[in-house]
Design a protein around this nucleic acid. Structure first.
Lengths: 216, 216, 216, 216
DNA sequence: AATGAATGAGCATTCATTCAT
DNA sequence: CATGAATGAATGCTCATTCAT
């Protein structure tokens, strides 16, 4: 009837290393199975780390998702900033926009996991229990829209600042949807490369922009 | 603190009626919380129907999802067929394509629930346990692509059959992504109406098509 | 990676019977180890019933305690009512009070489990999570105090109603403490029978009462 | 949502100080929530001391309880010895017993925490894992009974040593129960002061003693 | 002497499902 | 056809404890 005193262990203590391992595994699995569809046990099996390591590093499952999203967002923002540094100086709007979108496509291609998880969280509301994660989602989308506006504006700046702004306002929404659509189709369709889609998107948006300018 | 006796649900409920009630509640809840995030208990509370009614009408949770998807797909196909009946005879490609896309947008707007669930299942693979549902998902997307091709082809038929086919092949993918993007932004963004996006998409695709034709 | 469909069982379904079995085991174990000190697993081992039977019959661990207390209180009230039916008509206050206390002692002796649990809950506040149980505890003590007052009043009624009431008011608190003390010592001390204590308590209270009357 | 970094606790805290802080917090919390109901984590939060400080100063949770009980008992014994030093020389048994009980009541009033914890441990057996603590509990009760005997004997010594001893033997048990009951009612009942109860107890025991003497 | 990181066993609870009626 | 009772497996999480420093 007496409780047996719990025995301690002797094992590999990996410390810092394991925290990142957990984040990686979580991003990997959750981006495929969703938040609710990913059990802690799955992650435990996946990493081989002890159950308690998860709760040592993160407060809860929700906290873990938040951390994953936060890290992913950080890395994504960095990559976008890096990718859009030193845009080409001259050229036509089409050329400049093409450059931007091509670079963005590359960023996307290397961040499938994060973006898939992001989109799953956007679509379903299943992560309502992780409000911090949801806030990150919104921040990423807001920043994404800002980037989009910036790309358009920069590309059309040769037409004058006022026009560039007007075009950016008119097309930002469409551009974002283009990104979303590109990413969805990257997930669901057979191997069409994202770069091809980005070229078509650049053509589209340039045409849309020019029509807008002509109409003024 | 003891379990409250569950409410009796208007006695001897007729089978058909409760079956549909279950399907509706499932679509509603799952499209928001995802498959794994939706427990049978939630659906039971939501409907007020007895636990066993679910297993009476459906084989399992996976079977329930399959039925939901199947019914949703059926209705969606019907609506698309209906919406695209009697396209305008003459007009420019832009006008014809615009007509198609506007009609499609309307179909989307009335089927948010189903399409959200569809997209959640496309993005996450959490419904791997419901292969039949997954097959429906793929069927819907395939048929969607066919519709897209059909719309483009019909719109450009005035340019000759060969050209129309070439344009359809070149733009189908882009158009699908446009649909996906439109729907994602319908979910996440503030109240921009889908119709506006569809007009921009029509403009885009027409421009893309015309450029393609000119290049030949 | 696919979730294996949970297998069902084939076992003894005991129904109603098991509910009472759970209540009994819970009272037995919790009265010894306290609320927090009693794990669901312990009760499961103790009863041999499946884990889920507990949650089928009761909402939670707290709800289980509440049910135990509620049933125990019900039985206790019944026993007290039964024991104090048909008090002796004549006799001295000492004789009448002795009769009451002797009968009460017998009720106590047969309800050690419930009363121990009750006292544990009174002393420690560990069951703060089971407010319904706590309410029962308070109800039992309130009713106990009422009984005490009734016993004293009835015993001293030969001295006139006003005096009987005054004595009851003055001694009720002391009497309750006597009960509590009797029960504590029943738990902790070697085999002193409770009956002996009750006789001393009857003597004490009679003396206290008479002194009070004399002082008026 | 990530774990907040635990507050540093004023740097290099001196051993002695934190040891006592732990003992205090443990007594405070355990006397309310019981042994099993009090987790190490709770105590850590309560004190703000680092987790390991607990295991630095005490062997285990059980060892911590033992230390708390041991220190409490020590202090309690000291207080009793101090309180009962210099009893009044002359006077009636009632007066002398009253003096003793009043003094004891005061000791009780200032040691609610310890005595509540003691009584919780007496009633429930939840601390079976801390045998040393249980031994302390028994020692305190034994010593308590000895004190009780001593008080009664001293109070009745004017009647001769033999009689005093006989009365002490006969009433010690009742007196202990009186103490227990007083303490329980101190916990559960509205603000009746313990002093009033002690007076009634003194009256009672004197009456009991005198009746015993008369009967000889 | 003192501590932050790490851990396996156990916690209360919910899960999707099946049984007898 | 329809249902309330019952169930084993898994869920997210906390526990008391020990390690390296």
């Amino acid at each position: 009837m007496e409780k047996p005193a719990p025995k301690a262990h002797t094992g590999n203590r990996r410390g810092r290393r394991s925290r990142q391992e957990i984040l990686d595994a979580t991003a990997r699995v959750m981006s495929v199975r969703g938040y609710a569809g990913t059990s802690m046990s799955t992650l435990i099996k996946e990493t081989g780390l002890p159950r308690s390591a998860f709760y040592h590093h993160f407060e809860s499952k929700a906290g873990l998702l938040s951390a994953v999203m936060s890290q992913g967002a950080h890395d994504y923002f960095d990559a976008m900033r890096e990718a859009h540094r030193d845009p080409p100086e001259g050229g036509t709007p089409r050329e400049r926009l093409g450059w931007y979108l091509r670079r963005t496509g590359e960023v996307f291609e290397h961040r499938e996991e994060f973006l898939r998880l992001l989109l799953v969280l956007v679509m379903s509301n299943e992560a309502a229990e992780a409000p911090e994660a949801l806030r990150t989602v919104i921040a990423v989308r807001d920043e994404g829209r800002d980037y989009m506006r910036h790309m358009i504006r920069s590309s059309f700046l040769s037409e004058g600042e006022e026009i560039a702004n007007a075009v950016a306002d008119a097309l930002a929404h469409f551009g974002m949807a283009g990104f979303d659509g590109a990413f969805v189709s990257l997930q669901s369709e057979d191997g069409k490369p994202i770069s091809e889609f980005m070229e078509q998107l650049a053509d589209s948006m340039t045409a849309l922009g020019e029509a807008l300018i002509a109409r003024r």
